[in-house]
Computed example of a mutant assay.
Amino acid sequence: MEERNDLKSIIAGLVIIIGGVVAILIDLFWLKTDRSIWISIGCSLLASGIVILAQVLLIEDRKVNPLEKWGLEKIYETRAEKNQESDPELDKAKVQIDAVAFGLKAFRSRSKKK
């Protein structure tokens, strides 16, 4: 299985880090509070963002399901179900049709180009 990182978590971590840096800079250069409350909040956000990024990049890799990559749309229990749904669509196919099944002799003989 292929592994990939969760983009939403990476973006969230970066946004939280940026928010922390902004809070620190606001207190240092604009508000200049006595107790440095915004510096404390900014440092907390900065640490949280770093933890999120570390977890996403180093620990949690999401497993990609190969069926998503293949683009598999449906699995039918019986050939009759497949025929009922797909036969009307066969004439609309322009390039190719991909199907995996057992015993496709009737399908091949019925679908030969004339």
Results as ranks from 00 to 15, higher is better:
Glu2Leu: 02
Arg4Asp: 09
Asn5Arg: 10
Asn5Ile: 00
Asp6Arg: 11
Leu7Tyr: 15
Lys8Leu: 15
Ser9Thr: 13
Ser9Gln: 06
Ile10Cys: 11
Gly13Gln: 07
Gly13Met: 08
Gly13Cys: 05
Leu14Asn: 10
Val15Ser: 13
Val15Cys: 06
Val15Tyr: 04
Ile16Glu: 04
Gly19Trp: 11
Val21Thr: 02
Val21Trp: 15
Ala23Met: 11
Ile24Asn: 10
Ile24Leu: 07
Phe29Tyr: 15
Lys32Pro: 00
Asp34Arg: 13
Arg35Trp: 07
Ile37Gly: 04
Ile37Leu: 14
Ile39Gly: 06
Leu45Arg: 00
Ala47Asn: 07
Ser48Cys: 12
Ser48His: 10
Ile50Ser: 10
Ile52Glu: 04
Ile52Arg: 05
Ile52Tyr: 07
Gln55Ala: 09
Leu58Gly: 10
Ile59Phe: 02
Glu60Thr: 05
Asp61Met: 04
Asp61Ile: 00
Lys63Pro: 09
Val64Ser: 12
Val64Phe: 12
Pro66Asp: 04
Pro66Phe: 14
Lys69Ile: 11
Leu72Met: 13
Tyr76Cys: 01
Glu77Val: 05
Thr78Ile: 01
Glu81Ile: 04
Asn83Gly: 05
Asn83Glu: 15
Gln84His: 14
Ser86Pro: 04
Ser86Gly: 00
Pro88Gly: 01
Pro88Ile: 03
Glu89Cys: 03
Glu89Thr: 03
Leu90Cys: 01
Asp91Trp: 01
Asp91Pro: 08
Asp91Val: 02
Asp91Gln: 08
Val95Ile: 12
Ile97Pro: 00
Asp98Phe: 14
Ala99Thr: 11
Ala101Gln: 01
Phe102Arg: 01
Phe102Pro: 13
Gly103Cys: 02
Lys105Met: 09
Phe107Asp: 07
Phe107His: 06
Phe107Thr: 00
Ser109Phe: 15
Ser109Pro: 02
Ser111Arg: 09
Lys114Ile: 12
